[in-house]
Amino acid sequence: KVMEIKLIKGPKGLGFSIAGGVGNQHIPGDNSIYVTKIIEGGAAHKDGRLQIGDKILAVNSVGLEDVMHEDAVAALKNTYDVVYLKVAKP
C-alpha cells in the first residue's frame, strides 16, 4: 500500500532515521530506503503514520529508488519545513 505523508519539520528535523540504498543494502538484494528508527517527540512520531519498516519511495519530487544512501540522506536534509513523503507500507 502506497501513501503520501505530509510532515512539518520540527526543531530536530523530521524525526526518523533511514537505512538502505545502493552499496548499503538494508535487506540483501534490495536497494530500497527503509525507516529504521522513529525519534520520540519528533515530527514523524507526532504524526503517527510513518512506521519502522516503511519504505520511502520519494521525498517531495525526488525519487529514492536505486539511489545511494548518501543521496537519500541529502534528499531528506535538503527540504523546507513542509515535506511530502511517498511511502510503501510493508
Rank of each mutant, 00 (worst) to 15 (best):
A88W: 08
L85V: 10
K89I: 06
G15T: 00
K55S: 06
K1V: 04
G29Y: 07
A44V: 05
M3W: 06
T36C: 14
G23Y: 05
A44E: 01
G29V: 03
I52S: 13
E4F: 14
V82R: 13
L7E: 00
A58E: 13
N31H: 12
Y84K: 13
S32T: 05
V67T: 11
V22Q: 06
P28G: 07
S17P: 02
V67G: 06
L50Y: 00
M3N: 12
D81S: 14
K86E: 11
I18S: 03
E65Y: 13
E40K: 06
V82G: 10
Q51A: 12
V73I: 14
A75L: 08
K9N: 12
D30N: 07
K6Y: 05
L50Q: 00
G48Q: 09
E40M: 05
S61A: 14
A19K: 09
K6H: 07
A19W: 04
D71F: 07
G10H: 08
T36L: 07
P90N: 15
K37I: 04
N60C: 04
D81M: 11
D71A: 10
I5V: 06
V22R: 07
M68D: 12
A72G: 06
G63S: 09
V83F: 08
P28V: 05
Q51S: 14
K89Q: 09
G53K: 05
A58K: 15
L57S: 07
V59D: 01
V59T: 03
P90I: 15
E65F: 08
N60Q: 05
A75M: 13
K46S: 13
P11G: 09
A74N: 11
I18Y: 11
V2T: 05
V35E: 00
E40P: 08
G13N: 06
I5W: 03
I18N: 01
I5P: 00
V73R: 10
D71Y: 08
G21R: 03
K89M: 07
N31P: 11
I8C: 09
Y84D: 15
S17I: 08
P11R: 08
K37F: 07
T79V: 11
D30P: 02
G63C: 09
D66S: 13
G41M: 11
N24Q: 15
N24D: 15
T36G: 05
N24V: 15
V62D: 11
L50N: 00
K89Y: 04
V62L: 14
K89N: 08
E4I: 15
L76N: 01
E40H: 08
Y80D: 07
L57Q: 12
T79R: 06
L57N: 04
G42K: 04
I33C: 05
I39H: 12
S17D: 07
A19E: 09
K46A: 08
G20Y: 02
V83R: 00
V87Q: 00
G53W: 04
L76M: 12
P28F: 04
L14S: 03
N31M: 03
L85R: 00
Y34R: 05
E4D: 12
K55C: 12
N78R: 12
G20K: 03
G48K: 15
E4M: 10
E65G: 14
L76V: 11
A58V: 10
M68I: 15
K77D: 13
A74S: 12
E65L: 13
P28I: 10
Y80Q: 09
A74H: 13
G53I: 00
K55T: 08
A19M: 11
V2C: 05
M3A: 05
V59W: 03
K46D: 11
S17N: 15
I27Y: 14
I18C: 05
G41F: 06
E70Q: 14
E40D: 10
G42D: 04
D54L: 02
K9H: 09
A72C: 09
A74E: 10
K37S: 15
L57C: 14
V73E: 14
L85A: 01
D30E: 13
G23C: 10
K12F: 06
I33F: 12
N24H: 15
Y84R: 12
V82L: 12
V83G: 03
D66T: 12
A44C: 07
H69Y: 10
K6M: 07
H45C: 15
A19N: 11
K46G: 10
S17T: 07
G42T: 07
R49G: 09
R49S: 14
G63Q: 14
V73S: 10
I38M: 11
L64P: 02
L85E: 01
G29A: 06
K86C: 06
E70N: 14
D66N: 09
H45A: 15
G63M: 14
L76K: 01
F16D: 00
A74Y: 11
S17M: 09
I38S: 00
S17C: 15
G42H: 07
V73N: 14
K6V: 07
I38A: 00
S32M: 05
V87G: 01
G15F: 00
K9Y: 05
I8H: 05
L7Y: 05
N78Q: 12
G15H: 01
K55M: 13
G41S: 10
K1T: 04
L64Y: 08
E70V: 14
N31R: 04
H45Q: 11
E65I: 08
K12L: 10
V59A: 09
L14V: 07
V67E: 04
A44H: 01
D81L: 07
G20R: 03
I18T: 07
V67W: 05
Y84I: 15
K77M: 13
A43H: 05
D66W: 06
V59M: 06
L14F: 08
V59F: 03
R49P: 01
A72S: 03
Y84A: 11
I39C: 11
N60P: 00
I56A: 00
T79L: 08
A75I: 09
S61K: 15
F16M: 06
D66Q: 14
L7H: 02
D54I: 00
V82K: 11
G48C: 07
G29I: 03
A74I: 10
G53C: 04
L76P: 01
L50I: 15
I5G: 00
K6R: 08
V62H: 15
V35N: 01
S32K: 06
A58F: 12
A44W: 01
V62P: 01
I27Q: 14
V22C: 09
N78W: 06
D54P: 00
V59P: 00
L14W: 08
L14K: 01
V87L: 11
K46V: 10
G21Q: 02
K12V: 11
